[in-house]
Design a protein around this nucleic acid. Structure first.
Lengths: 178, 178
DNA sequence: GTCTATACTTCGATAGAC
DNA sequence: GTCTATCGAAGTATAGAC
């Protein structure tokens, strides 16, 4: 039974992600999502039976994209830490968008919060395996996260911007001295 | 005209802060605030004429407590950076509570967002003046913020916990080598 | 100064037409 | 499969009694 890869469903999820990002954590209503997706609330509720089902649809998409990224990070020739620090390669991707949207959901959805926690743990483990120094892995992760946070929330790099590569050099230089 | 230091107003603000923290970014209603404060919604709306006025009341309190803390941080004998890194002295204070509550408001209130941004800038400037190294000040701030974030949101220190004092030693050791 | 009662709005969800 | 119409719950705000 050949069936259209139903794009209405995907359009609705796209609209949901967009609105979650734009509304910056405030509530996103089914009416808004339906309007943005070009359907009515009734139409939306045909595809996603309830608000909760819509949330779950987003989290499923997040999980898929995140898993793909873990694999890329682990296999990165430049190493997991350097891969993680390349914010320019992350910003603007579908993964980033779904990630932000999932973060917005995390306040009222336990599964979303779990997925975000799980992601942080996996990122740390990969960077630790790469650098072989838990303290350095931890510091690097915190710094990259913080820089991204400033970039993402304030909309511009905090002044002065930190050169992560230079920071890593400075930190790595201290390893031999222990 | 001696007038009671009207504590109903303060009780309402206390309840508002508590509920904002507990509800972790979800909506806090006037009914909930009123109930927690031991007044009715009508009573609440006598003291704070609208939802927006209640928000403003919280932000005024934040601004006052934050300004007091800036002064302490600048005058700290151990230096601004070390003062900033002492999370144990911050966690559990009224300042922390109001700070979290203000952060919750920042999503839907522009003034709250501005106050948070302003606080970050002041913290950075004080640490930079203390350390005399913008890159180190920036890294330290990001790391302390990140550790606090994990502590506050996940409820426990991320494993492994980073020793900020040791980190500062390692980083400061690299300064002479530039 | 604080409470009760209620009006108005918004949101999620259901029923049923098409 | 998508839309219209509408319900019920929850939220903010107002009017007026006490």
């Amino acid at each position: 039974m050949a069936q259209h890869r139903t794009s209405a469903r995907e359009s609705i999820l796209d609209a949901f992600v967009d609105l979650l990002i734009e509304s910056n954590g405030a509530g996103v209503t089914l009416d808004e999502v339906a309007k943005r997706a070009g359907v009515t609330k009734g139409g939306l509720l045909y595809h996603f039976g309830s608000r909760k089902v819509l949330d779950t649809g987003l989290l499923d998409r997040f999980e898929q994209l995140a898993n793909e990224d873990y694999a890329r990070m682990e296999a990165a020739p430049e190493g997991a830490a350097t891969y993680y620090a390349k914010l320019a390669d992350y910003i603007g991707t579908d993964l980033e968008r779904v990630c932000i949207a999932t973060g917005m959901l995390a306040k009222r959805d336990a599964r979303a919060a779990d997925l975000v926690r799980q992601m942080r743990t996996i990122h740390f483990n990969l960077m630790n395996a790469d650098l072989g120094d838990p303290m350095l892995a931890r510091a690097t992760m915190l710094i990259v996260d913080g820089m991204y946070y400033d970039l993402a929330t304030i909309g511009e790099p905090f002044t002065p911007e930190l050169d992560v590569a230079a920071f890593l050099s400075r930190m790595l230089a201290t390893k031999s001295g222990r």
